[in-house]
């Protein structure tokens, strides 16, 4: 490296403006913890998430009188270790969030760019479709889709992806329409670039900032809605250690054993909060216009 004073790199600049927002840094910290826990689930968990200890039904957490160090956060009604289930649940939740966002981002952006580039009837058709989906409360539409496709984690993810599509379509279409009038797009077109190349290679990279922010915030929506579906019995099915499904399973006896209720919900809250804080910080850092 040379000793001259260089301009700080773009990443450094980004980090400086991001780190101003303490909430966002906290969110990032939470996210890192979650990702590490999810990645090392096999090492960190004391037991497998579905192993039933028949002598330890509804054991309270360690700090309670009858707590047991084998089960730091207690056990559920069939003697499964809460902590291990929560750890594996983190893996599931992140996986759900990632898959839903990836599917919605890819399909939504493609549809949005198509609407912007094609214009005319195609544009009207796609945007009408978006309006129609937006009329339904997203959770209700997801519930209906799952009710029809049948309950299960895959269908729940699909349903949540469908109901979150409109945001990506609108955002990518709006930013693409702005870019389309720029000189560099005209120049590339004049140079003979194909429409596909124009869409994905020329215009898309310049529309990424709002999409990245929306996708980050989309993680929290996806995790929250998938957990709600799990809670209603329409998402992941027992004994899958999905947090929402765990809450549904706790319904019959949570009044006797608060820990089976408190921890999974708290895990959902913290995960959703992490992505919301991080997403807000990302928006402020990526889009200086919004900052005051």
């Amino acid at each position: 490296m040379s000793a001259t004073v260089a301009m700080p790199s773009r990443l450094t600049l980004f980090w400086r403006s991001f780190a101003e927002n303490r909430g966002a840094v906290f969110g990032l910290g939470l996210m890192v913890v979650l990702i590490v826990v999810a990645a090392l689930a096999d090492v960190l968990a004391l037991h497998t998430p579905i192993e039933q200890f028949r002598d330890n039904f509804l054991t309270p957490p360690v700090w309670a009188a009858e707590g047991d160090w084998h089960f730091p956060l207690g056990t559920d009604d069939v003697g499964r270790d809460m902590l291990s289930r929560l750890i594996y649940g983190a893996r599931l939740s992140l996986m759900i969030g990632f898959s839903v966002v990836a599917v919605a981002l890819i399909i939504g952006t493609t549809l949005g760019l198509t609407a912007a580039f094609a214009g005319g009837v195609v544009d009207v058709f796609i945007m009408r479709m978006v309006d129609v989906i937006l009329v339904f409360p997203s959770l209700l539409l997801a519930i209906v889709v799952v009710a029809i496709l049948g309950p299960g984690m895959f269908n729940a993810m699909l349903a949540v992806a469908v109901v979150t599509l409109p945001g990506y379509i609108r955002l990518s279409r709006a930013s693409a329409l702005v870019e389309l009038n720029r000189d560099y797009v005209t120049a590339t077109r004049a140079a003979g670039a194909s429409t596909l190349r124009l869409m994905f290679d020329t215009v898309l990279p310049n529309c990424m900032a709002p999409l990245i922010v929306h996708a980050t915030l989309g993680f929290s929506t996806a995790i929250l809605d998938a957990a709600a579906l799990g809670f209603l019995g329409l998402g992941a099915q027992p004994p899958t250690p999905e947090w929402g499904t765990m809450l549904a399973g706790a319904l019959q006896y949570y009044q006797r054993a608060w820990w089976v209720l408190a921890f999974p919900g708290f895990a959902i809250l913290m995960t959703v909060l992490a992505f919301n804080l991080f997403g807000d910080g990302l928006r402020d850092a990526l889009d200086p216009k919004l900052k005051r």
Partner: peptide
Amino acid sequence: MGASVTGASMPIFWWGLMMIL
């Protein structure tokens, strides 16, 4: 603001059960 971002992230089905509890 901290409370409001937390509130907006709330899984209300859990929140309701905790309130009942």
